[in-house]
């Protein structure tokens, strides 16, 4: 083989090999569009604005027929008190259905504790709800196809199809799923799918007097929620699980679990 031939063949081989196989794959426009639909619901929680009134929890329970007295809820508000010595005390009595009206922190069996004002470094409220993850662990584990994600991102439960095995309740890293005491199926936040898909607001966001909770379309560049998520410093809960949660938090602390 002549040197010139060798160099030419080598150059052709190297340039050919550098083109990855995926680059040669034909893209189906339908599939590309389905991966980027015009609507992707996302939720924005501003923890600075939350005052712990719990109106959101009450409104959610009434709107979605969750028994008020049952110890289950689709959304709840946690209180965090971080002391100057670095210790964190947290409580969430009845999911904050009746709000926070006392300085005493409910620690369950170990009773109630009072953190004196002068020991408090930070104290704030964190509303929680289903994160409607892009890669929902709860959906993956469903053995019967009863829970699923819609094209616009909402994770829902088919009440006719659910067999109540509870895998999804175990699978959710955020603990947002529970067993509905009346319907006898797994239940969770739907982002008020019946309201938002008709142009309305979620019951919790509507009940919030302070604008601490907002829902929006992540694909709409003019949407105020999308703008904040894209331009502000927002955090998500338990990023390390890789579920890509779509409830974004302003003012999230490392103490919040």
């Amino acid at each position: 083989m002549r040197r010139r031939d060798f160099l030419r063949t080598a150059a052709v081989f190297v340039s050919g090999a550098s083109v990855s196989l995926s680059a040669l794959e034909f893209l189906d426009p339908g599939k590309v569009l389905a991966a980027h639909p015009q609507l992707r619901w996302a939720f924005l929680v501003d923890t600075h604005k939350c005052v712990g009134c719990g109106f959101c929890v009450k409104a959610c329970k009434i709107e979605n027929d969750i028994p008020l007295d049952a110890n289950v809820t689709r959304t709840w508000v946690e209180r965090y008190v971080i002391k100057k010595n670095g210790e964190t005390v947290m409580d969430c009595p009845k999911g904050a259905l009746d709000g926070y009206t006392s300085k005493l922190l409910d620690q369950g069996k170990s009773g109630k504790v009072l953190v004196p004002d002068k020991e408090v470094a930070q104290a704030f409220f964190v509303p929680k709800l289903c994160n409607h993850c892009e890669l929902p662990a709860c959906v993956q584990v469903c053995p019967v196809g009863a829970t699923y994600q819609t094209a616009d991102g909402a994770v829902l439960v088919d009440r006719q199809w659910c067999i109540g095995c509870g895998y999804c309740i175990m699978g959710c890293p955020y603990g947002v799923r529970f067993f509905h005491p009346v319907e006898r199926v797994a239940d969770k936040c739907t982002f008020c799918y019946h309201r938002i898909s008709k142009g309305g607001n979620t019951a919790c966001a509507q009940a919030c007097p302070f604008g601490a909770r907002r829902i929006g379309n992540l694909r709409d560049p003019d949407d105020p929620v999308a703008k904040t998520v894209l331009n502000q410093r927002v955090g998500v809960l338990r990023d390390e699980y890789g579920t890509k949660p779509h409830v974004f938090y302003l003012g999230l602390n490392k103490e919040v679990r």
Partner: peptide, 27 residues
């Protein structure tokens, strides 16, 4: 459905059933 086998395996008409869920709050 749209979200594929892993996340979108479901009964499509359930989406309409959830949309038809009665709202309690007006504004």
């Amino acid at each position: 459905q749209e979200r594929g086998y892993t996340f979108g395996f479901h009964r499509l008409s359930n989406e309409q059933e959830w949309q038809a869920f009665p709202a309690k709050f007006k504004d």
